[in-house]
Design a protein around this nucleic acid. Structure first.
Lengths: 224, 224
DNA sequence: TAGTCATTCAATCAATAACTTGACTGATTG
DNA sequence: CAATCAGTCAAGTTATTGATTGAATGACTA
């Protein structure tokens, strides 16, 4: 252990171990949407409060999340290192080489959306010439914590009731929490079935934000 | 577990867990140099044969390495997914947020080489106009398995004896196994003390190869 | 085909990790 | 200042992991 090389590898391994737990990755995805209390995160992931708290502390020790106190609540948010980049690399590696992931993705997601997603670059271009409407299908509170500028927020649960707000003559691009967030897949499937021209954004909100692109905050629920 | 999202996170976590072990990361770095037998890898890492074998099988199941039989030996090499990219992301994250890593790096490596390393792009440019000599300080057998084109191979152990082969009027750029490989740090320190104009390449051989750049094979030990 | 070599497998043990439960702490509120 | 609320801590249980040992396999070699 006195060998500096061994020690460095051990440091790297320690970080990898922190990501080596499904529940922690899920907590991390939720924290990446914006600040959240421990209770909320526990709720969102279905973990017990104590368990979520402990996982969050593990994530914090590794710098993947930061926390601050707000009254009697403790709020956790994404850390400021290149966390999203690391998760992206993990995802890309998994997609490349992991038959199981490909299997789950193709059996579940691909069935819902067989078409190619829209890339961030393509979206930026299309937003520029106004040929597209952005749809954020996350719950309203997550939207309020931050969203792509100009996005229309209709939580997936409300979609049926609020169809009138969607254009029928312009293409829609839907996004949610991340590349594997189910909401946008299902939104695309549902709306496409109703005849809408809709695609899915490849990334979610955290990836957009991590790329340094501007984000909107509570208030602007409409295109400018 | 029947939830597809949970299942995907679990898959990701499983991969991260495989990287969550220092010995495996070290094996991976050695396998990234080129094909190696189990015995050799065990030797290089100081692990027992059975232990190395078992770790290699874990790495193989996750696709980080591939193996093939050659007579009675089993040869392991890097897998063909974006492994180096993932390790790079892990390294960058670690450097950003991990005080311990920064501590080890600065106390050990920075003492040896306080100057900025040369980036791959810079090197490519400099190689183009011939203003630099490339030095590979890895052992000869690793060099033989693949190296940057036109590199001169002087294993670190032989450096003192073979100083005559190095130019005194041209800058030297040294590299070895990867960003944290000790050999190139020490080579730079040793040669700089003797008055040579020498810098360290930021990456090692695996990163170069993973970037899709051409690699040389056994035979061409000299600049073209 | 018996012997040898390189690797893997199986059994075992100690160490670590995940989750639960219930007690504890710190900040607000009556 | 007692009560409550949000989160953390500590102890215990069970499961998983890493390492060791020795036996078993599979492929060459005399």
């Amino acid at each position: 252990m006195t060998n500096p090389k061994t020690e460095i590898f051990e440091q790297f391994a320690e970080l990898a171990r922190v990501l080596g737990q499904g529940n922690r990755l899920e907590l991390l995805e939720h924290a990446a949407q914006g600040e959240r209390s421990v209770e909320r995160l526990a709720q969102l992931t279905g973990l017990s409060l104590a368990n979520a708290s402990q996982h969050l502390q593990v994530l914090r020790r590794a710098g993947f999340v930061r926390s601050r106190r707000d009254g009697k609540r403790m709020l956790y948010r994404l850390g400021d290192g290149p966390v999203i980049e690391l998760l992206g690399a993990l995802r890309r590696y998994a997609e490349h080489s992991r038959a199981e992931v490909r299997g789950i993705v193709s059996s579940y997601f691909d069935r819902l959306d067989s078409l190619e997603p829209v890339s961030r670059d393509t979206l930026l271009q299309r937003l520029g010439d106004g040929s597209v409407v952005l749809l954020d299908v996350r719950p309203q509170d997550e939207f309020a914590l931050g969203h792509l500028p100009g996005a229309l927020n209709i939580p997936f649960a409300d979609l049926e009731r609020r169809l009138a707000e969607l254009p029928t003559d312009t293409q829609i691009v839907a996004y949610c929490r991340g590349p594997y967030c189910v909401l946008s897949f299902e939104a695309v499937a549902a709306l496409r079935a109703k005849g809408y021209d809709i695609k899915r954004l490849e990334d979610g909100f955290p990836e957009w934000k991590a790329a340094g692109l501007p984000v909107g905050v509570a208030g602007d629920h409409r295109l400018p």
